[in-house]
Design a protein around this nucleic acid. Structure first.
Lengths: 344, 344
DNA sequence: GTTAGCACTCAAACGGTATGAGTGCTAACA
DNA sequence: TGTTAGCACTCATACCGTTTGAGTGCTAAC
């Protein structure tokens, strides 16, 4: 759809002011707000047209207009122009020294929420390759063997395996060598049943132990399939009346705690990370994964890439009338900082 | 304070009905509800007395009475009697097979929230002894050494250490033996500076590596100091009008996401785990740790003990007019199951 | 000590009346 | 033909007085 310039400007003006005030905007307001120097009557005519096109609606007969989902869509796709606001502070604020990726991400989420006044989410990176780098079995006590598995990107998983009796250190050494030489450099999802059988055979009496280790490896993927998600600022939704209403808030809060819906959003973002400059904007019903209760929200996400195939999602959840410019800027800032910080 | 029997019964009746309805209860209601066969006028006189004692109040002149914090306190301390409700379902429901403690706890939290219709919290157990059971360094690649530390109770921590150049396998073996013999069985908080210096000395050129390992061990305690907390059913608060009100809800949700306040509650519970049968009830202002926004809530907690010095907290957050009987039952049920399950 | 009766209070619900923001339409104007 | 002023109309919201009903305190009688 291509709008004539004037309608474009008017739509832009309507949405801009609506973003600020959250209240239906009338023709008179626009008449004064724009530099078009048109009377309110003329604006009314144009508005009438825009309404016919499905870009704006009146909540009731004698009210001003508010954007529809399609209206927002057009705004985001065509009328958005970096306003270069002061997300400056973030640039300096972010990332006091933090060793653990987990804490770094939590901090980033908090920062994002505080600076935008929306709710933020951030997922632990998944590893695309899933190559196994190192495996080690250790005897911890008589009945327990600890399996440590290091995956490309230095992610560590461990699994405590219960055994009937202790292995002697020689057998342990052998098993370790066997596992390492068989699995080193292999992508976890490529481990075939045949390979497992072969290893088991070589392991002889310890075949049961081996299958436990394989289970742990499989689990390492499984937890990557539903990556950990950290959130912050869920309470920010109460700042926006259209979300603060009980049934709405209840559902959103539920989603944020349950994390199932958020997981879907993350999956979606990682899957179709096309979008303008890698930014995804979901408006209202566009929010993926039949997210009950998210109909009144917009979700903006992007993917960060820590190298080594480690990719995660950061995102913002807020009312449809969110400050898209600011949010996009903030996301980009955090994304870049995250990437720089980790690569250094 | 000791109340005469009749006043006791009346107070109990008032609170009971208020817990159910959430609305101020009048004299006529009580007159019919109790088996005392007293007229509403008599009840009114008694009520007037109870009000003078600070156990109940009227929200406004011509309204019924609602309990004060002190009223609730008395109810909980003296008038509560196990009603043995149907928390039956929980007994069968709980705990489908789960290997990971983390998942087990998450599941328990969810169950608790679903069955009570309040918000639940559950903390990862802290380890009181903190005895080190096993340490192992492994060369993962040229520049990384993985330190795995197993603590009594089979909790595993790992820390990736960056090094300038690879150690030969003999040196690694030596270091491992050195660390194990020096630290095995030692409580982490008992590691003295002197001991560290001694180990460093013996480690010779690898002293730097050793200090990294010690840091990781220290970190293992640190994260235990602020244990992970899982929550569920925070959205349940919207079921209770007195909590669903915006400013209130916003703060509670904030607390649940931030987890700082919850952490204080957990600390508190672990500290003074006295209480009737180990159950702690905090009513309104009694909630520990200057919990902003929790004034309208009651918090019921207890401590679970997985053996081996591993203790954690489970709790329920709800409106003051919560069904204390049911909540106490539910907490006990989950606590016992948790303990049984883990010990088996 | 208990109860019936009565006057009184007050939140909440109800209904009618402004108020005002905003519209659509028409007719005049450039 | 596009723009504008003017006017009648709509409708959510606020305001105000009235009614309703639940509940109280007090008093007098049992």
């Amino acid at each position: 759809m291509d709008l004539p310039g004037r309608k474009k400007k008017i739509l832009q003006a309507i949405i801009r002011t609506y973003l600020e005030t959250g209240e239906p905007v009338g023709s008179r307001t626009i008449s004064k707000y724009t530099d078009l120097h048109l009377s309110s009557a003329t604006i009314r005519n144009e508005m009438s047209d825009l309404e016919e096109m499905g870009l704006i609606v009146q909540p009731h007969t004698s009210a001003g207009r508010i954007p529809t989902d399609r209206g927002y869509r057009m705004y985001v796709d065509e009328l958005l122009e970096g306003k270069n606001q002061e997300v400056e502070e973030m640039k300096s604020l972010l990332l006091e020294h933090e060793d653990h990726l987990e804490n770094l991400l939590k901090q980033a989420a908090k920062l994002l929420a505080n600076n935008t006044n929306y709710a933020s989410l951030i997922s632990m990176p998944t590893i695309s390759g899933n190559k196994i780098k190192f495996i080690q079995l250790s005897q911890v006590d008589r009945n327990h063997i600890l399996a440590v598995i290091v995956i490309e990107g230095n992610l560590v998983r461990n699994s405590m395996i219960e055994v009937d009796e202790a292995l002697d250190s020689e057998a342990l050494l052998k098993l370790n060598m066997l596992l390492n030489s068989a699995l080193d450099g292999l992508a976890v999802e490529n481990i075939s049943l045949g390979l497992i059988a072969a290893i088991k055979k070589q392991a002889g009496i310890h075949s049961e132990l081996v299958s436990h280790v394989m289970d742990a490896a499989a689990e390492a993927i499984r937890t990557d399939g539903r990556p950990e998600i950290y959130t912050s600022g869920a309470d920010n939704i109460f700042k926006y009346p259209e979300l603060a209403e009980q049934s709405m808030a209840s559902q959103i809060i539920g989603d944020f705690e349950e994390k199932k819906v958020l997981g879907n959003i993350v999956q979606n973002t990682l899957a179709d990370s096309g979008g303008k400059e890698g930014i995804q904007v979901y408006i209202g019903d566009e929010v993926p994964a039949s997210a009950r209760g998210m109909e009144e929200c917009s979700v903006v996400t992007t993917t960060y890439d820590l190298g080594g195939g480690m990719k995660g999602t950061i995102g913002i959840v807020g009312p449809k009338r969110m400050d898209y410019d600011k949010v996009v800027d903030a996301l980009k800032t955090v994304m870049h900082q995250l990437e720089d910080y980790y690569k250094k």
